[in-house]
Amino acid sequence: MGPHVSSPARYRLEDRVLFIMVPMFFAFPIVLAIADHYHLRPISDVLAVVYAALASLPFIAAVVIFGLYMAEEKDEFQKSVFTQSLLWGIGATFAVTSFWGCMEQFGHARHMPVFWVQVVFSIAFVIATAANRWRYR
C-alpha cells in the first residue's frame, strides 16, 4: 500500500457505498411512485410488508458493507477514525430524533417521517468523516 490516504479496503468501501447510495436514498420514493403508478393505494397489508422490506434492503447492505470494511481494513488508525465517525453519526441521529420527537410530542413540531433518520445519520457521518480527516490531515 502506498502512502496515500485511502487503503485498498477504503477504496472498496467507497465503491460499495457508491453502489448502494442510489437505492439507499431513492428506495422509499421509488416504492411510493410504483404504488401510485399502478394505483396500488391504499396498499394491501402484504404489499406494504413487501415494499417496506424492499426499501429497507439497502440499509442492511450498508451495515454489511461497514462490517466488511472493519474486517478488511488493515490500518488500525483508519479503522479507529471510521469508528469515531460512525459513533458521531449515531450520536447525532439519536440527539436530533430525540429532540424532534419531544418537540413533536409537545405539539411544537410537525411529524417527521421515520425515513428521515437515514438522512440525518448520513449527514452527521459525512460531517464527522470530513472533520476527522481535517483533524488528522
Binding site: 502512502p3 488500525e76 488508525f77 483508519q78 488528522y136 490531515r137
Partner: peptide
Amino acid sequence: AQRLEVSRQSVNAIETGKF
C-alpha cells in the same frame, strides 16, 4: 508510512501523540 504499510495520517497521528 509506506514501510509500515499504513497511511501517512497514521504516522502523523502516532508522531503527534493523537493515536
